[in-house]
Write a protein that binds this DNA or RNA. Structure first.
Length: 239
DNA sequence: AACCAGGACGTGA
DNA sequence: TCACGTCATGGT
């Protein structure tokens, strides 16, 4: 049992190193309010602040990560970012000003990111939450209690905005590690999360970069079926 | 022209 | 608990 755990740990690190050497640091979480960051697209070697794991550097950036985490739900970052930039134009990412926007204005502003009716509500929910925090770091349960925040979004906020060692599991993570036979399709969120958290050192920059690399890798090899993934073929578990 | 995107929620079984 | 349906725009 312990031997298996060590082996898995080693393989997970090898996969990480492989992805990192393939794509380089991704510069997550992308921040528009980051001086010296040209608003370009994310992706391999195109992140906003690759290799900088000290962000966010202020409360506004924490709030920006929260907004982005909602906006990017079930859409791509390019569109979420457009919505974020428009919100920035209108409010400067000021929570009070965002609450002052009318519902219709808010919806119109974020329309490009899809699901704008519910996301407008979710943005308000998380904005009220953020204001009430008054700079305090929230617990996972508190964040999960916000309507519009599920497990992935909560972990994204904790990992990238608050540097908490919570591994983020998204659809891509499931897809890759199911393909490699590390998890089954129907594994619950917590199970997949623990595959990483129990077999990797509790290292925030590692968790941040790993998740970002998974997304980049999946975009390249796990969109069209059947999946091939020659880059990680050697790590596939035979069963 | 279907299919997909860095999900979450409500519902009925 | 769980399997589905729903939410919606934009890119390929």
């Amino acid at each position: 049992m312990k031997a298996l755990k060590i082996a898995k740990s080693s393989i997970l690190m090898n996969i990480y190193e492989r992805l990192l050497s393939l794509y380089g640091p991704q510069g997550w979480w992308p921040l528009i309010n980051y001086k010296g960051s040209p608003p370009t697209k994310t992706g391999s070697m195109q992140g906003y602040h690759p290799g900088n794991y000290d962000l966010p550097e202020n409360n506004k950036q924490i709030y920006e990560i929260m907004l982005g985490a909602i906006l990017v739900q079930n859409t791509n970052w390019k569109l979420a970012e457009q919505a974020l930039l428009r919100l920035n134009d209108e409010t400067g990412i000021d929570p009070e000003k965002i609450l002052q926007l009318s519902a219709s204005d808010l919806k119109e502003t974020i329309k490009c990111a899809g699901f704008f009716n519910q996301k407008a509500n979710y943005l308000r929910n998380i904005t009220e939450f953020f204001i009430k925090l008054e700079g305090r770091t929230p617990h996972r349960k508190e964040i999960l209690a916000i309507k519009g925040v599920g497990e992935e979004t909560a972990d994204s906020i904790l990992l990238y905005a608050y540097h908490k060692p919570e591994f983020v599991v998204d659809a891509y993570t499931r897809r890759i590690f199911h393909y490699l036979n590390f998890t089954n399709q129907k594994a619950k969120y917590k199970q997949v999360k623990e595959l990483f958290e129990l077999n990797l050192p509790e290292d925030v920059p590692l968790f941040q970069e790993y998740h970002a690399l998974i997304v980049e890798h999946a975009k390249r090899h796990y969109i069209k079926k059947p999946f091939k993934d020659e880059a990680l073929q050697e790590f596939k578990i035979n069963k």
